[in-house]
Write a protein that binds this DNA or RNA. Structure first.
Lengths: 223, 223
DNA sequence: ACCCCCTTGGGTACGGTGTACGCATATGGT
DNA sequence: ACCATATGCGTACACCGTACCCAAGGGGGT
């Protein structure tokens, strides 16, 4: 087995290496061989500690939600403040590890022990609203989906710009050569400052408040 | 080239075959070879009409949004009615072609000529609210993300049940052997009827109205 | 001391993937 | 008749997940 860089293989080291790889080169770069290589090990050795590649990805998500767990004691924040706190934590996770958005999109619903803990934390946060448990869960998932969608938009906005050749080329490829003038509202939109600010935190935060206003109204109604 | 089943190869036939394949066996089953085989052609022949696999997937999404386009004349519906109409169209698309959810999750923002047309339609629908164009766009994306997230939850709820051996095995694998009793609210949630009705149309529709109430309040405020 | 088993590491190989390259054939224009 | 162009596709390469089998070492029992 020779020297084998560093400690012996174990689950945590494997998951950590996979996360580093995904952070550096994206989720597609995470292959068993490349993760193993990063540990100075052979590809098949990983299977002693992880049953599947799918399971490895699951553990990556778990580890990330653990690292970005919400504080045990949120202090004297009201429900809205706590949801904003949650949003800030999630947003930080999405922007520092964008690949997690791809993972959760194909997972859904949230999972793993730490995923459960996060759900419990959120249910606790909205408890003062007096909503039923199913309604509370729906409200939280609505917020989560809003955040994930916004993060995807914000990140894909800055994403194609990494391509050197022509930043507008990928755009045109996606548009399929459509005639923008046939859609005046969309045209006005892309020429407005919407594109610039749609990824900003203020823009996302105020949009979150729109969603929360709807939830607050639902709570008032049911009370 | 021999007989070559049916007409000569062209983009529409390729995209159509790819959609059929994805409907029948999921997005992962869509490979250049299998799509070509379905047309009685060789794998490399597809590249005469499609530049990439990525482009093929883009065209699949485009074709689907074209098939599920919103009606040109929505009649005398008010803005809320029109958004509900949009929601019904989208929901039908998600449930009849679940793979599209995976595609749009990695695309974002919506694209292609028909994607633009859909956006224009929605911007027109919310125009009576008097919101600014960026605010309107944000509202529409919020609704879209709510619907996509709900569809993902609804479909993944019925998804793992297809596995024969043990329907709860995949669940346990995802939970990672967590102790549910440590999370009383989550535990109460999964034992409630939330799991049963969370995929139902009424549940999703009333959740949509919660979001729309928030948007309506925003419009009232800015007026 | 010896043997045996069991855990961990990993090399080889199989069937799959996207696609670069080059050749064969059919078609249309002159 | 001849050539240009468009279309179909066979081969090959690099990479993927992973089934299978063997090598090396660490305890425990005798």
């Amino acid at each position: 087995m020779a020297d084998r860089r560093g400690q012996p293989l174990n689950r945590e080291r494997i998951v950590g290496a996979a996360i580093e790889l995904a952070d550096a080169e994206g989720l597609d770069a995470v292959s068993m061989r490349r993760v193993a290589a990063r540990l100075g090990a052979g590809a098949m050795s990983l299977y002693r500690h992880v049953s599947d590649k799918e399971q490895l990805v699951l553990e990556m998500a778990e580890e990330l939600t653990a690292r970005h767990a919400y504080p045990d004691d949120p202090g004297d924040l009201d429900w809205r403040g706590r949801i904003h706190l949650m949003a800030r934590h999630d947003w930080d996770m999405y922007t520092s590890h964008p690949w997690i958005l791809t993972v959760v999109a194909n997972l859904e619903p949230p999972v793993g022990p730490h995923g459960l803990a996060a759900m419990e934390w959120a249910l606790r946060a909205v408890e003062p609203l007096g909503l039923s448990l199913p309604a509370s869960a729906r409200a939280i998932m609505t917020v989560t989906h809003y955040l994930q969608g916004s993060a995807r938009m914000a990140l894909s906005a800055s994403g194609p710009s990494r391509e050197d050749s022509d930043p507008g080329a990928a755009w045109q490829r996606r548009l399929g050569g459509a005639d923008l003038s046939r859609y005046p509202r969309v045209q006005a939109l892309v020429t407005s400052d919407y594109m610039a600010e749609r990824g900003g935190r203020d823009w996302v935060t105020s949009g979150l408040d729109v969603v929360l206003d709807g939830i607050a109204a639902e709570a008032d109604r049911s009370r």
